[in-house]
Amino acid sequence: MRRVRVIPVLLLLNNGLVKTKKFKKPVYIGDPINAVKIFNEKEVDEIVLLDISATKEKRNPDFTKIQEIGSEAFMPFSYGGGIKNLDEIKTILNAGAEKVILNTEAYNNPKLITEAANLYGNQSVVVSIDVRKSAFGKYNVFINSGKKKIKTKLIDYLKQMENAGAGEVFITNIGHEGTFAGYDLELIQLVSENLNIPVIANGGARNIDDFHKAISIGASAVAAGSRFVYSTNTNGILINYPDQIELIKNFYQKLD
C-alpha cells in the first residue's frame, strides 16, 4: 500500500495560530504549541509552519518559537517565513526542523536554495509558490504573501527553482486558500507535469476526496489548513486529523 503525506499547515501571526481566507482576514485559532501537541497525539505525518508576517514586517524568523515547537514536534516539520540567509537556515534545522520553506527569498535570491541544498541536501529545501489565476485563465506567481506579482512565467519559475536545487515545491492557489472549494487541480497537474521533484498540493482542500484527486493527477503529498483547524460540520474551531483507519480505507487503498 502506498502512503502519501497528509500535512496540516499552521499559520503563525503575532505568536498566535491563525487561519486566513485567500491570504486575508486572519482569524485567531489558538496557541501554536498547543496545536502541535494535539497533532502529535493524532500522529500526523508532517507539519508545515508558516510565519505569515515575518517577510512583511521585515523581521527574522522567531527562533525561540521555532525551538519551542521543535521540542514538541515528534514528527517532521518544516518552517517558512522571513528566511534570508544560510545562518538562519542552520539555526532552524538545528532547532529540530527537517526542512526550511523559501518563498519571497527564493525569488529574490535563488542562490540561497543552491547553497542550502549543497549543505543540507535537496530534501531540506522546500520552495513555496503562491499563484493567482488571472481573469484570462493565466497563472501568475506572487511573492510577499501574495502581494507582489513577479514577471517570470510559472513554468519557467518552476524549472528555475528545481534547477536551483529545491527538493520539493509547495504550491498554493491563493484564490482557493481557506475556501474549502477543493484544490485547483488544473494548477496541480500543470505543476506536477513540469517538475521531477515532489509537489505538495495546498489551498482549498475540504475532504479526503480532494486529497485523492490531487494525488491522482500527480501531487506527491497533500497539505491543508482550514480542513485541520475547523470542524467541517459546525465551522467551529476544532483541531482535527483523520485517523489511520479512515486514511487507509478512504485514501491509501484507493491509490494505485
Binding site: 500500500m1 502506498r2 502512503r3 502519501v4 503525506r5 505525518d45 508532517e46 530534501q123 527538493g167 520539493e168 521531477n196 521533484i197 515532489p198 500527480g218 506527491s220 503529498a221 494505485d256
Partner: peptide, 14 residues
C-alpha cells in the same frame, strides 16, 4: 518503480 514514485522516498512506510 511505478512512474508516480519519486526519489527520494520521503514519507511514512510500514
Amino acid at each position: 518503480m511505478p512512474d508516480n514514485y519519486k526519489i527520494p522516498n520521503m514519507g511514512w512506510n510500514e
